[in-house]
Amino acid sequence: MTLLHWHYPTEILVGENASSQLATLCQQQSIERPLFVTDPSLAATQAIRGIIAACHNGHLAVSVFSDFSGNPTGEQVESGIRCFLEGRHDAVIAVGGGSSIDTGKAIALVAKQQHPLWQFEDIDDNWKKADPSFIAPVIALPTTAGTGSEVGRASVITDSQSHCKRVIFHPKMLPEQVILDPTLTVDLPPHLTAATGMDALSHNLEAYCSPSYHPMAEAIAIEGMRLIKLYLPIAYTDGSNLQARTQMLIASSMGATAFQKGLGAMHALAHTLGARYNLHHGLLNAVLMPYVLCANRHYLHEKMQRLSHYLELDKDGFDGVLEWTLALRKQLRIPHTLAQLGVTAQEQATIAAQSVNDAAASGNPIHLSQEQYLALFNHALNGTLDL
C-alpha cells in the first residue's frame, strides 16, 4: 500500500475579542521583536492600531511592514525580508487576508535562509533546502474568511517576471498560533465578504472532489460546506452578526485544512488569471466554480449525490449542487462570466498552457489537457455552461 502523509492544523484560539490575547501569546513563546505584517488599508484602521498598541504595552518591539499588494510579488516579499532583518525581528505576526498571511509566512521562511525565495517553490523536495532552525515563528490573525492561509503550509506569491503564481512550501511555514476573532471581520464590506466566502467554499469543494484518498479531510470539507451554506448569506447581509462571522472563519480554516487532499482546475485557472489580471483570487474562484464543476461532471456523480444529501439541497445529485452554487452566486451578486471582470480572450492560449502546468491542476478529478483548459476558459469567459 502506498504510504500516506497527512497533516492537521496548529493551535487555534477562537472567539470574540480573542485578539486581545496576542501580546500574552507572544510572551509565552518568548517572542520579543515581532514584525507585524498587514496590508496598507488595514494598518490604518482603529482595530489594527489597537492591536499594535497592545503589543507595545506588552513590551514588544513591534514594527509594521505593509508594502505589498493584494497579489503579493516576489519583490515585495524581498522588501519584507529586508525589513525583518534590519529590525532584528524574531517572529512574524501576520494580520489580514490571504495576501498578508502569505506574505508574512514567506518572509518568516526565507529571511534567514541561504537560498532565495523561488528556490522553495513547491516542486519535488525543494522544501528540504531550508534549514528549519532558521524559520521564524508566525502568529496569524485572519481578517477575512476565505483563503485559510492561517492553517496552511504554503504561500502563493506572484512571479512578476513570468506573470505566474508560484506556491512556496515548507511544513514549518504553518503558523504556530492562529487567532480567529470575528470582531476583526465585521467591517469587511459585503462584496469582499462574498468573494472571500466563495473562496472558502472553493477550497472545501475542490478538496472534496479531489480523487486523493484522505477521508478525514473529506469529512472536514463537507462540514465546511454545510457551515458556508448556513452562514455565508447571513454574514453577507448582516456583517455585524458575530455568530455568522465566527462560523465563516471556522469554515475557512476547515477549507484550507481539507485541501491538503488536493485542489483542481478552479485554482489552476484562478492562479493564472490572478497573476495576469491582478484580480481577487476568491472572486475568480467564485466565477469559475460552476464551469469547473461541469467540466468534471461525469466523474462526480457519487460524490455529488452524497453532498446534496448532506447539505439537504432541494434536488439530489450533481444538478442539485450546481443549482445551489449558481443560486448562491446570484444571491451574493457574483458576476457570471470572466468577461464581467475585464478578462479577454487575447491571451487564451497562454492562459491554458500555464493552467495545465499549475500546481493545483494535479488535484483535479481528471487530468485536463491544454485544449480542455482552453475550452473551460472560453465557457467561463462567455457564460456557457457545458451541460
Rank of each mutant, 00 (worst) to 15 (best):
L13V: 05
S20R: 15
A23I: 03
C26M: 13
I31Q: 11
D39A: 09
T45I: 09
A54I: 02
N57G: 15
L60W: 02
F65S: 12
G70E: 07
P72R: 14
T73W: 00
G74T: 03
Q76T: 04
F84G: 14
L85C: 12
A91P: 10
G98P: 05
I101P: 09
L109G: 07
H115I: 01
H115D: 11
H115C: 11
P116L: 06
L117Y: 01
F120L: 15
D122S: 14
K129R: 15
A130K: 11
A130N: 10
I135E: 07
P137F: 01
L141D: 06
G146A: 12
Q161W: 00
H170C: 10
P171N: 08
P189R: 06
T196M: 11
G197V: 01
S202C: 14
L205F: 11
S210D: 08
A217E: 02
I222F: 05
E223K: 15
L227N: 12
L230D: 12
Q243A: 05
A244G: 05
T246R: 12
Q247F: 01
M248P: 05
S252H: 05
S253V: 02
Y277M: 09
N278E: 08
H281M: 07
V287I: 10
V292N: 08
C294W: 02
A295T: 03
Y299D: 14
K303Q: 12
Q305K: 09
S308F: 01
S308I: 00
L328M: 13
Q331T: 02
I334H: 04
V343K: 10
T344L: 07
Q346T: 04
Q348D: 07
L381E: 06
T384P: 01
T384Q: 14
